[in-house]
Structure formats: C-alpha cells, structure tokens
Design a protein around this nucleic acid. Sequence first.
DNA 1: GTTGAAACTTGTACGAG
DNA 2: CTCGTACAAGTTTCAAC
Lengths: 156, 156
Amino acid sequence: MKVTNQNLQIDGIDKEILRALMEDARTPILEIARNVGISGAAIHQRLRKLEKSELISGSKFIINPKALGYTTMAFVGIYLDKAMSNPEAVKQLQKIPEVLECHYTTGNWSIFIKILCKDNEHLMHLLNKEIQSISGVSRTETFVSLQQQIDRQIKI
Amino acid sequence: MKVTNQNLQIDGIDKEILRALMEDARTPILEIARNVGISGAAIHQRLRKLEKSELISGSKFIINPKALGYTTMAFVGIYLDKAMSNPEAVKQLQKIPEVLECHYTTGNWSIFIKILCKDNEHLMHLLNKEIQSISGVSRTETFVSLQQQIDRQIKI
DNA sequence: GTTGAAACTTGTACGAG
DNA sequence: CTCGTACAAGTTTCAAC
C-alpha cells in the first residue's frame, strides 16, 4: 500500500524503517534489514532518500530531566503590551534555557511557553525575575503540570 | 521505589558526550572521542555508565510532521465533570494518535493536551468528534499554535 | 579512569540483475 | 528497487597501566 503525501511516497518498508528509528535512533541499519527481510544496502538507500526528503529532521538523545533535578514542568501564557513586538520577546525567551517551547498562539495570550524547572522556588524565580522582567511582558498565567501522562510523536 | 539519582557525577567529558548525542544521536563514538581527545573505549565506558544511570531515557529519530501534512499544532484545555476520573479520560486520549502530550495540570483545566493535525477541518473533527465524545468531557478551550519559535531540550 | 589492540559488527559505495 | 560483495569505519571487550 502506498501513501502519497505531497510529493513524498512512503511505502510499508519505509514506515518500518522510520518506526524502528523513531523508537531508537541507534538501531543498526542491518538489524532493521534483518527484521524487514531486505538487504542492508536497500535500507541504506531508502534512508538516504528519506533524509533527502524533509521527512526526517534529525535524531536526538533524550535525556531524563528528572535525573538532573528538573522535576517541575509548567506552561505559561504571556500577555504582551500592544506596543511590544513578538519577535523581540521571543529573542529574550530564547536566552532562558528553561524555556523549552515557545508558541505564537491564537486566543488570550500573545505567547505560550513550556518551561522546565527544578522546584517551585526555581519556578517562581523564572516567572518573577526572568520572564516578567522581559520588557513588554505585562502579565502571565501559569499552569503547572503535576504529571505528564502522554509524550510521543505523531504516528506514521 | 527508585530514588532519582541526585549524586550523579557528570564531568565535562560526560557533558561533551551528551551534547554531541543530544544534537545527533547517530554521532559515532569515535568521532566524539576525536573531538574530546580521549580514546573511543573511554567514551564507550562513560556512555554505558550514563545509560545505566537514568539520565538517558532513549534516542529518537525526529520526523518532520509538516512533511506528512500535519501543519497545525494546538493546545487544548479540557474540563472534566467532577464525577469523571482523570485516568479514564487519559486512557481515551491515548487512543487518539494526534494527541502528542497530555498533562494533569493545576488551574482551570483538568487535563491539558497538545495535538497535531493536518488542517482546520481535521482540528475541528478532533475537537468535536474525538475529544468531546469522551465521556466526562464537558468543555474545551483551544489555542492554535500559529508558529513554534522554540523547541529544545533542557541544557546540560 | 584510561589505554591500545583484537575480534566483531555496521556503514557505505558500486556494479549488476 | 534490490542484491552481493568488499572495504572502510565504528563498536565492544579485555588485559594492563
């Protein structure tokens, strides 16, 4: 079965390859080849095709933030003064390493971010000192994640 | 119960290893060794130590959802009826592949999720058909991410 | 902790079906 | 698109420092 998305053609074998690598980026090509039942060279060539298309945007080691003492995740909705340009605020947020995601969203807030901190004190410092001190930020609304029950990529 | 290992000792070399692998999980050990200036065997041993500690929770290929036609990311705050148990709702959300993250948060909402969809029609379907039909869900509030400007892991 | 070397496994290129 | 082969490169183990 072939699925066409834009100009990209991904068949079942490509999906197998991606699924294996999405789970563990260091899975050897030859191991995938054995599981799928075609030669390593074929897998290799398909991988190159997939990389050349923009389907694969990289591979990453995932570190466990808890092991580093980062136990508190929170989402913060940020209100900006009308005069304040969004890109300028993002530039400032970029400098705060605890900011993991930053979105320009519809709705109440100008900016919506995900942050990771060590404890409540750390969270308070981030909110009151780091984020509130960015010029243009007028107000924030914070939601602490008590537990993350799902964390995954889109299914292929 | 396992206690998070706070007395983990990470030196500069470990950090170099992690930084290289966080950027590209397929970076060869020997390449890291050359950059750091110690032998491949030493890097290998350190990596095993890091993997045995719970600092590394895996490695993943990152696929670009846009190449699959998923262009719209949104956050949805979900209100649950008081009678509804959170775990049951999460179980239902787990079945929806477009739900990438699910958090139990403080604040207005019982559940806060991140979803990825192909277009506005798809988004509407998810909200009105998939999510609203979960028993116990009373109301939702949606924030569409028009642009994601930051996406990264915690700095080490 | 680190090392180099040995033994083994993978990655990659290429010609051919 | 796939394969087999062949060589380069990376991984893993281990005795020894």
